[in-house]
Simulated scan of single mutants.
Amino acid sequence: MPTSGWYEYYVVDPDTRTRSLALAVYKPCDAFPEHAVHECVLLRDQIARNHRRLPVEWLDDLLREQLGTLYGLLPRGFSVAAFLFLILRAQEDAPVVDDGPEGERFRATAPEEPLRRAVAEAMDAHGFQPRRHVDPILDQVLFYVATGRFVRPWSHFTRTWSVLKWLQYLTQRTLRNEMGLTTGRLKAPRHVSLVARFFIHCDPVDPFGITRLSIKLCDSDPRSLLDEPEDIHSGYRD
């Protein structure tokens, strides 16, 4: 039985309440309802810690600068949805937390890598701000953005890659496919066991502000989605 799934991010218009698909993310394994709910909770906690205003402008500025006229072709709310994707990728990329010698919990330091050194040197040379963020997850997202600006710019891939493939590459150490969240639809979608639909309710004044994040868990048949988005306690439909 497949354990893969799709995470679909919809932006909800604060005035009309209409929903539009901003980004689809493929999860190749462990796409279980409880995992999707857990990831929704992680995103909600991150949003709450930042007072419902994530620094989406980091990514949005990168997309505007790198894509030029292509930026206007992105789906509505793409920057917000893609930023949530980067947060989940940063969670996947986080160093393992181990037990210390006296039972303390600590986060292991990631080894210094050539890519990280190259990004840090470029940030220094260009006076890039902010350099770091106190939140380790947002600090990793900032690293992804800086990677796209200085080391893996869109101009290097524009003739052969899609924007989604480029965005994915910003979160990977190498070109080798990783068994994590993957942006974009497949040409021939495989059968999946779960479709998790995240509904991003944006602030009516600030398009980067998120007032609410809800989720609906469905089976692989999209017709199982109810008309109204429900909260994370709505359950899973067989």
Rank of each mutant, 00 (worst) to 15 (best):
L42T: 13
F208G: 06
F150D: 04
E178F: 05
N50Q: 15
A81T: 01
D124C: 06
E104F: 08
L73N: 09
L59T: 01
P204G: 12
E228T: 14
G235V: 07
L170T: 03
N177D: 13
Q168D: 15
E34C: 02
R185E: 15
L88K: 02
I232S: 10
V12P: 06
S162K: 03
T158S: 14
G184F: 03
K187W: 07
R64W: 03
I210H: 01
G100S: 11
T16W: 01
L70C: 01
C202N: 09
R116G: 12
S155G: 05
Y10M: 11
C218S: 13
W58F: 05
H51L: 05
D227N: 11
V96W: 05
V205A: 12
L115V: 15
Y7C: 04
G103D: 06
A122H: 04
R116I: 00
A94S: 15
R176F: 07
P207Y: 09
H126T: 14
G148I: 03
P95H: 08
D98K: 15
T160N: 08
Q129A: 12
A90R: 02
E113I: 00
D124W: 11
T183C: 12
R19P: 01
A188L: 14
R132G: 08
P33K: 02
E102V: 00
L217F: 04
M123F: 05
R117D: 05
G180W: 02
T109C: 03
S224P: 04
D238S: 12
A31W: 01
R132K: 15
I200G: 00
V12G: 09
D93T: 09
E228D: 10
P14A: 10
